[in-house]
Design a binder for these strands. Structure first.
Length: 390
DNA sequence: CTAGGGTTAG
């Protein structure tokens, strides 16, 4: 455009900023913004909305909030999208109270929330584990005169599966069908994912067939679900064949694809190949391989290579509660109760949440192998940590 | 040109 002598305008810059935001390129977002100002092009609400979104996506909620304040203080009126981005961002970073407050403020003013806003809030509350609040908003949605759409249904269904209300989730799916909602890949993948997790592979298979019969084109998430299905069946050959097909079709495998395969290889007792695959993943430079590492760690332990697993564990730069819970469990299984206890203590000190079942395994292991004094010491430390949390 | 639902691990 520059070479052709066409001057970029605000829409040009907004498009670029949106693109950068989509790929989490915060510094490019800011550069574009700066460039725009230097050229004397005034950013509009779209620019600010995108910038806010980019800050949220890049883990800078405080900065996003600052942009929001700027919008409010300036002469530009925020749009519903502005509020939607804020509500979503607040929930994502655990500020569900702020999200709810913003929502209530909207209701008090001239913005009647649209179905999209309800969906965003319900989803945010569900993911933050605030099911009661989510249920209340869902009820309000019903009373508001808006009709829940496919997104609402998928959101609530996913929420049921997450909170282990499996039957209720399937009922929502049935209700969706009954009411004549068209199923898309989102709804199908939600249900298939839940079925696969519970080992009901054949049923998941049937859903996949239905999906194809419905004429829904498979996207990368659907392919990942299918690969996961093959892996859970133990058919790694089929999974790898599909991988080739996907790439021939012009799709690009993502971190989910590779993580699913790594877990599949571990579960098929092929830990060596899993480790090679993880190394390949690292060479490819995926933004996050934490889940893949967690899978490998578990696989190594289950294959009896606990020492090596500990070495890998120490080399990891990123760890989460999955890492610790699974390692503590596996150490107990290997009857290494003192190592498990040490690891559990480090979690208590750093505030990393760890499964209660893993904690119980350590306590039980210590006391049953003649270390009841250590067990009771650990028990009181667990209690203390719990008290300090609040 | 902006937001929102789906796929992975203990």
């Amino acid at each position: 455009m520059k070479e052709a002598g066409i001057n970029p305008d605000v829409v040009t810059y907004n498009s670029l900023i949106a693109g950068a935001s989509k790929h989490c390129l915060l510094s490019q977002c800011l550069d574009l913004f700066e460039e725009m100002l230097q050229k004397g092009i005034r950013p509009d609400l779209w620019s600010y909305n995108s910038l806010m979104h980019c800050f949220f996506k890049s883990g800078e909620p405080a900065e996003a909030n600052r942009v929001f304040q700027d919008i409010i203080m300036s002469n530009t009126d925020p749009s519903t999208t502005t509020f939607n981005i804020m509500i979503n961002g607040h929930c994502k970073y655990g500020y569900t109270e702020n999200a709810l407050m913003l929502f209530r403020n909207l209701q008090r003013h001239r913005f009647t929330p649209q179905i999209d806003t309800y969906n965003i809030l319900i989803n945010g509350l569900c993911k933050a584990g605030r099911l009661g609040a989510a249920r209340r908003i869902l009820k309000e949605l019903g009373q508001s005169g808006h009709v829940p759409n496919a997104i609402t249904y998928t959101t609530v269904m996913k929420c049921c599966f997450r909170s282990r209300k499996f039957k209720q989730g399937l009922e929502i799916f049935a209700e969706m069908k009954e009411k004549g909602y068209t199923f898309d890949a989102f709804a199908y993948c939600t249900v298939m994912g839940a079925l696969i997790k519970r080992g009901r592979i054949d049923e998941a298979s049937e859903f996949m067939e239905n999906m194809v019969r419905d004429g829904i084109e498979l996207d990368m998430v659907s392919y990942n679900t299918l690969i996961n299905m093959y892996c859970k069946k133990g058919n790694l050959e089929a999974a790898y064949n599909l991988l080739d097909e996907i790439e021939k079709g012009g799709f690009e495998c993502d971190k989910y694809t590779h993580t699913i395969l790594i877990d599949g290889l571990c579960k098929a007792s092929n830990v060596d190949r899993a480790e090679r695959h993880l190394r390949y993943m690292n060479v490819m430079g995926f933004d996050s391989n934490l889940v893949a590492f967690n899978c490998l760690l578990d696989g190594l332990c289950k294959a009896g290579q606990v020492d090596y697993a500990m070495k890998v564990f120490k080399s990891m730069e990123l760890k989460d509660s999955f890492t610790y819970s699974s390692l503590v469990h596996n150490l107990c299984k290997a009857r290494r109760f003192h190592s498990a206890s040490k690891l559990l203590l480090s979690c208590l000190r750093s505030g990393v949440k760890i499964l209660r079942s893993a904690q119980r395994a350590v306590l039980l292991g210590l006391s049953s192998s003649g270390y009841s004094r250590e067990a009771s010491k650990l028990r009181s430390k667990i209690r203390l940590a719990k008290l300090l949390q609040y």
